[in-house]
Design a protein around this nucleic acid. Structure first.
Length: 297
DNA sequence: TATATCTCCTGCGGGC
DNA sequence: TGCCCGCAGGAGATAT
């Protein structure tokens, strides 16, 4: 599932293969792939056509492309400087840059023709992701799409303030894993990296955030940063063909996971068998010895 | 206001 | 072989 490292891999791919290119035409074949756009997919296509991609950005799990004006543009180019194409990959979204002649993927819901003959394709099996257009706003010293303004900085952001996040977490009277997954507190963390970071920090996900000490939370946030950095270095985590970079290649971090998906396998730290529990309608993996459950709420 | 739960969606694998 | 069901889970909407 695409979490921060996987999304960053995609962003880098877009920066390499799509930035500088002009969108010569956009075709939407699945209306659900266009989000929050009252005017509909046709209007989104019209607004994007003729824009040159200036840069690829990311915050947490959100990607967005910004544009500059281009002499090749249509009437839409006049607004390009203030417009962002926001992309969320959901659970299974892919942003692929393919030769136009390449076979079209079964779940290719949006296809954008680039001026170098390639196509930028949004492929999404489970249709939890999508594209949307947004205006740009300044929040806390950074320019972001207005639909991303509520998303907190992620641990790989140079301006990530660890102490401020520690304080925000301690203000929450709920389980620490819920807080890690709350993108308004700290962004980019999904179920996989939450379990990995909690395992590294030796904390059970049902511990109440407000009861954790500042040093424990610093350790936890450092674990989040470390696990994401390591995953990014090897191209992200892949369990199947659902997560790939813009060239359709998978990452290798799944081989390094210490907790997620390892039910009944020995803990790398103590040897106890890892367990799986239901939490927030999804699976959580932990070590019953290293990560003690709280006695009660 | 803060927190918890529901819903969306599709493909895969297991059980019968 | 085919059908049914559970599972995977990000995030907005809704409920408490």
């Amino acid at each position: 599932m695409p979490e921060l490292p996987e999304v960053e891999v995609v962003r880098r791919g877009l920066a390499e293969h799509a930035v500088g290119r002009v969108l010569e035409g956009v075709t939407v074949t699945h209306p659900r792939a266009v989000r929050r756009h009252v005017a509909g997919p046709a209007d989104l296509s019209a607004q994007l056509t003729g824009l040159r991609i200036e840069a690829a950005h990311r915050r947490g799990k959100y990607l967005w492309l910004t544009f500059d004006a281009t002499p090749l543009g249509t009437g839409a180019s006049a607004t390009g400087l203030d417009l962002a194409l926001v992309v969320h990959l959901g659970m299974s979204g892919q942003m692929l840059v393919q030769p136009a002649a390449a076979p079209v993927e079964k779940h290719a819901h949006i296809r954008a023709v680039l001026d170098d003959g390639a196509e930028l394709r949004f492929v999404d099996q489970r249709t939890f992701g999508g594209w949307s257009l947004a205006g740009l706003v300044e929040v806390d010293g950074s320019v972001v799409p207005d639909t991303v303004a509520h998303i907190a900085r992620d641990p790989l952001d140079p301006r990530f303030d660890r102490e401020a996040v520690v304080a925000a977490i301690r203000a929450k009277n709920t389980e620490i894993k819920r807080v890690l997954l709350d993108q308004t507190v700290v962004s980019g963390i999904g179920n996989i990296y939450a379990d990995e970071a909690l395992w590294r920090a030796g904390l059970h996900g049902t511990r109440i955030a407000a009861t954790l000490t500042r040093p424990a939370l610093r350790t936890l946030l450092d674990a989040v940063t470390a696990v994401m950095t390591e995953a990014l270095a090897v191209g992200g985590t892949s369990f199947d063909a659902l997560y790939v970079n813009v060239n359709g290649e998978s990452g290798y971090f799944s081989r390094s996971l210490a907790a997620y998906g390892r039910e009944n396998e020995p803990c790398d730290r103590c040897g106890a068998l890892l367990i799986r529990e239901q939490f927030m309608n999804r699976s959580s993996f932990s070590c019953p010895t290293c990560q003690r459950k709280p006695r009660r709420r």
